[in-house]
Write a protein that binds this DNA or RNA. Sequence first.
DNA 1: CCTACCGATCGGTAGG
DNA 2: CCTACCGATCGGTAGG
Lengths: 199, 199
Amino acid sequence: MSPRKSVAETAATRDRIITSALALATTEGLEGLTIGRLAVDLGMSKAGVIGHFGNKEALQLAVLASAVDRFRLRVPARAVGAAPGTQRLARAFDEWIDYMAEGEGHGGCFLTSVATEFDGRPGPVRDAVLEALASWSTYVKDELRAAVESGQLPKDTDVDQVIFELDGVILAANQSIQFHRDPRAPARARRAIARLLAA
Amino acid sequence: MSPRKSVAETAATRDRIITSALALATTEGLEGLTIGRLAVDLGMSKAGVIGHFGNKEALQLAVLASAVDRFRLRVPARAVGAAPGTQRLARAFDEWIDYMAEGEGHGGCFLTSVATEFDGRPGPVRDAVLEALASWSTYVKDELRAAVESGQLPKDTDVDQVIFELDGVILAANQSIQFHRDPRAPARARRAIARLLAA
DNA sequence: CCTACCGATCGGTAGG
DNA sequence: CCTACCGATCGGTAGG
């Protein structure tokens, strides 16, 4: 009377699907991701794949949530040891740049791609991207405020302007790495970040 | 014995198709663009639409070429009157920011989207995007060099670094406008550009 | 987790 | 520029 698969096995399969889907969505986009292609890649039936999620949109949301989790574990989590303010931010951006340079289609770049892909498509996926980006902005804003309060940055710093420009550097790094495959991109990004975080 | 359509009428139809395709590709992506949907939007048959181009990839390339043309007519062409160097660049970026802020899915933003969409898909479309971006970079580089030579910018200016950061500002503006619909984005972008072009 | 199937749509062609 | 059609694939469901 035991079930065909244990709870742990089911969760492992779900993880395998998400990992494969994330890789596929990195090249094809989250909308270009298809259940049939995913099933072939995994050696499963379409019904077996989609059964874990219900429908394509739920799968998209699960892939996105997984990418956000990986990003948080890789970037902000590694910066917790640094002192609040500019040091913690410098560390976080450094980690992000490493993360982008390292793999082909890991988390951070993926979020950027999905933001572009869904900027004209209202719905739950767009909302989830918006929430992830807002969460990152809040993180940066809190650290910038701490930097201003502790005197690391001038009192009259336009925090939102700095966030805007930091964001631009990340987007430029992403494009340089993903599209142009320019090996000098990480160094350029680090230089720009350093200047924005200098007093 | 006269043909069913004159050469001029055929060209006009082709233009209508491209305009409609550009609008569709702005929300759906250049790959998400479908001949069937386009035919419905235009009140034509699928064969009537695709007959003008041959196949979908040729249509994608035509849409891209059209977007690049519009961009050139709108941005660099309007800056020719300004003095070479920082003034011309300031004017060009100003026009670009206006262009982004103005419409929903006009040229400049479109190029950025397509660059993201095709960063993992080698082929003629990616090559065409690469060429368009390279052409813009060359334009900026020439003006920056002129600015350095004429003393508008310091002799030790790292021109490629400035290009990288200018690119970041445009990408941040694009994301702020297209995704976040933030009305403060143009002002933020102009401020960042002004700082990068100041001696 | 599978097989077998559904209606809809895909890109594209033949022929006029 | 149209009608009529092709094989392939889409997301998803029924039933086990």
